[in-house]
Design a protein around this nucleic acid. Structure first.
Lengths: 199, 199
DNA sequence: AAATAAGGAATGAACATTCATTCATTTTTA
DNA sequence: TAAAAATGAATGAATGTTCATTCCTTATTT
């Protein structure tokens, strides 16, 4: 029986191996070994190597989307919502280094043309940030002169770069709580001491 | 004659090919063809494929560092300095898509262990941001509760993600000037409408 | 003429994918 | 109910291709 169980086992193994070696240096045989499965078995569950990466990516991001949506639905204050998003993302990346790495890989390795074609879950994820910002603008909490489409990328990019470093230096210089606070502060109030300076 | 000229020609070709195909899909023969040079010739100038990527990366970032330092030395106001850095980086990435792409590749593909070991020019580049922030804090222009080591990554990461999108969609949704202004605004004053909310 | 640079064909290792075969499980037959 | 047949998941060795790198040859420089 072609079990969903085995599918999962392979996904988990692939995540681990992709994260450790990167997509191109990951061998199918590595993944097979990690999943305790024969090389050929993998092709009963996935079309090819790239299909695996995409599956891993979509599944993991999908989880993130559900998780964050769950956390946000109780909240009304856009300011708090943004904080929750930031804290959740950073904690998740810190906890799950493999996930952070796979995001980095999928977003930047492999073929550009195929790339954003199937990344729907990822767009969905980023758009949560944009939605929060628009909500805040409607409620008059956030500045109206911020473009949500740019802000969402700035915020995600900032966190992604921070997570990238976590995956290089195992010893994080800063505590996770401090990092969260910093990111929240930077995006909420900026680096400026006084406000009159903005144009 | 083993000319510096040929070295440059190869670097330029490599940048182009790496940017177009990514490191792993770039063939030495592609680079050789692009540089109008024989495959073997490349090995007179570089030890191996990865050495080429690293050379390309270091050289390009080195240029960026010089360029931005030149622009900053006339400036005293940290606020303006940060603006200059942001504008310069974004314009450079927009103008030179290959450079943006190579940064993405080198930072995330290839081997993690070797990775940050030789990335000195890149650290130098990021530290310019940190220096600006510290200067601003000394001068009382920037908030003292911002950690420069985190802010520099947030700012770079934000711009890098924006540049990533430029390399995927050829049609940028926003004008470059608007994007610059947005990034500056987000980092200087944040998204919040009122200030009393920060902790 | 010697030394150095460049050329590019040849090499061989690496690796994704395939596919003939096995074998445990389920279904059918008697 | 037991034996026989069918199924299809799993295996992993074999295949064939794809390059990075080498190294012998040719061209150029001094």
């Amino acid at each position: 029986m072609k079990s969903a169980d085995k599918h999962n086992k392979i996904i988990r193994a692939a995540t681990k191996v992709f994260a450790k070696k990167g997509f191109f240096n990951a061998r199918i045989s590595d993944i097979a070994k990690e999943a305790k499965v024969a090389d050929g078995t993998i092709y009963l569950y996935f079309n090819n190597k790239y299909d695996m990466l995409l599956s891993v990516f979509e599944e993991k991001i999908g989880r993130l989307v559900e998780q964050i949506n769950g956390q946000l639905e109780k909240e009304e204050d856009p300011r708090r919502m943004l904080e929750i998003f930031i804290v959740n993302h950073l904690r998740e990346m810190k906890k799950n280094k493999n996930l952070a790495e796979v995001i980095q890989i999928e977003l930047r390795q492999t073929n550009k043309i195929i790339r954003d074609f199937r990344n729907n879950k990822f767009s969905e994820y980023l758009n949560i940030i944009a939605t929060i910002i628009m909500l805040g603008q409607e409620k008059g909490v956030f500045r109206k002169d911020i473009l949500p489409g740019i802000a969402k990328r700035a915020i995600f990019g900032a966190m992604d770069e921070i997570a990238r470093i976590w995956n290089i230096n195992m010893d994080s210089k800063y505590k996770i709580e401090d990092t969260e606070l910093q990111v929240i502060r930077i995006f909420l109030v900026g680096v400026l001491q006084n406000r009159e300076t903005s144009q």
